[in-house]
Design a protein around this nucleic acid. Sequence first.
DNA 1: CTAGCATGTAACCATCATAGTTACATTACA
DNA 2: TGTAATGTAACTATGATGGTTACATGCTAG
Lengths: 148, 148
Amino acid sequence: MNISSRFAVAIHILSVLEMNKAGISTSDYIAESVNTNPVVIRRIVGMLSKAGLVEVKPGVAGAKLAKHPAEITLLDIYHAVHVVQEDSLFSIHENSDAKCPVGKHIQTAIVPVFSAAQKAMENTLHEVSLEEIIRNIYASANGTLNEN
Amino acid sequence: MNISSRFAVAIHILSVLEMNKAGISTSDYIAESVNTNPVVIRRIVGMLSKAGLVEVKPGVAGAKLAKHPAEITLLDIYHAVHVVQEDSLFSIHENSDAKCPVGKHIQTAIVPVFSAAQKAMENTLHEVSLEEIIRNIYASANGTLNEN
DNA sequence: CTAGCATGTAACCATCATAGTTACATTACA
DNA sequence: TGTAATGTAACTATGATGGTTACATGCTAG
């Protein structure tokens, strides 16, 4: 089990919006770069829009970033696309037997640890901005220029 | 999407093995505490056995911890039950369009960040031992003694 | 002002992981 | 030797996901 590729695709989309900000990024255009269906793009863009990360209007072609890339963290994107519902990365087995001491208290015992682990992961995402990702893309592109 | 409850159940199982080490913990016995089917328990115990965390033999009733609880970390358990295949918590969208600079380099740009986030989470799990979980269970049990 | 294009979304499908369940073979021990 | 427990295969139901078609809504250019 792993985290939905929506997250990676969302980062991809936002990177396209920034790097193509001189042009018009329609869902068809983005879909080509991501290599998927335009509806998939529109779905994710819709989520990013609801989260206030992009601006898009029905009928008018193209989406734009709603903020500067430095002000968008990967955690913002992560939350926007709902890769994890209700902030519970780990699922706990409900309905343990309350007659057993382990069953009765296991939940209380592990929830704080799961929460800490999730927070540690999210903190890492919080420390990285879209701008840094885009810098990485440019760096990677420069590093492979002679390959092209 | 969230991480399989196998992880939480595995912790539950190991806690039962330790706290009931004076008795015999059969899959039926454990299943009652977890409130699930004995086969589910046997499946997970099998994984824990392959990982060298428990000792169990066909035909002989009950499983035992193979190590001291202080020497079993939550990360060990996490890996044992394969909640994440191939150590890839985050999935990346393959087959991006190589003709687009974003599509060509997005993967290189985000993989290190995803890896760091995953590592941060796993480090947290690595810092917590089964022994601490069991202490938490006892603490929780003591804190609610007057409720019973 | 209308025709065409783009977004928004519903609906459906195939795929996959999961948890639960039944059934049965294998193995130990009393 | 027979009972009981583990090990597993096989099947089912469920839920999330990504892809796809279809269509309603809404701009905007000509």
